[in-house]
Amino acid sequence: MAITEVKQTSPSQAAASSAGQQFQIEAKTLDLFYGDFQALHGINLDISQKQITALIGPSGCGKSTFLRTLNRMNDLVKGVSIKGEVRIGGENIYDKNVNVVELRKKVGMVFQKPNPFPMSIFDNIAYGPRAHGIKKKSQLTEIVERSLRQAALWEEVKDRLHSSALGLSGGQQQRLCIARVLAVEPEIVLMDEPTSALDPLATLKVEELVNELKQSYTIVIVTHNMQQAARISDITSFFLNGKIVETDVTSKIFTNPTHKQTEDYITGKFG
């Protein structure tokens, strides 16, 4: 399947991809409609492996909608229709025979508001692996510890793994949600304004964590906090009115953008 395809990319395959560089996610002329309303217009975006790509833009510009097309969360919304394609690891995820459940296992997602499940910390992390058929207690314990360590939460919660996750602070809850995603070993992690509900200190911790995760995961993050995008991302893509205005290396976007609209936005003239 697609997973193995990416992991076993041979040099020749990489060379075969268009820019000579390997893109893990490729959106091609993607249109999205809510009923009659067109929310995304011909989105083209290539996202590279093990990098942080930030999607910025004013609210309602389509950045979150686009993010949710990457793991087909928009399928849950009534009346959504999609044209064009999104290729992940070379496979169009909107193909008829794509298994959405497997896709979401590969493409994890962290939401705007922390959404810990009303169960213990341990069970929150073990939830995904259990659903995917892992039953052995020792294996689960190992996954829980590893995921919590990866999410820099282990030290804080190791003594109360079996108390309710709802008792954690907002920032801890969000890191728990990240750990929960990591526990199912995705290749890509989508983050939808993951720090917008957190205080500055907690935000900083999550940002550090995201930076760490880049080592092993491809990260796409939606944020309306431009400093955040500048701080953590490698590539930034600016969305406006359902279209991509420009995508470039982050440092270039924030210092020397090509388009006037981008400049206006990052200098705070609108949005």
Partner: peptide
């Protein structure tokens, strides 16, 4: 948000409901 959180982990609808 709980339904989304669970489905985004790659669980089926029934797993989400049951679990």
């Amino acid at each position: 948000s709980l339904r989304e959180g669970s489905l985004a982990l790659g669980t089926t609808k029934w797993q989400t409901i049951k679990g």
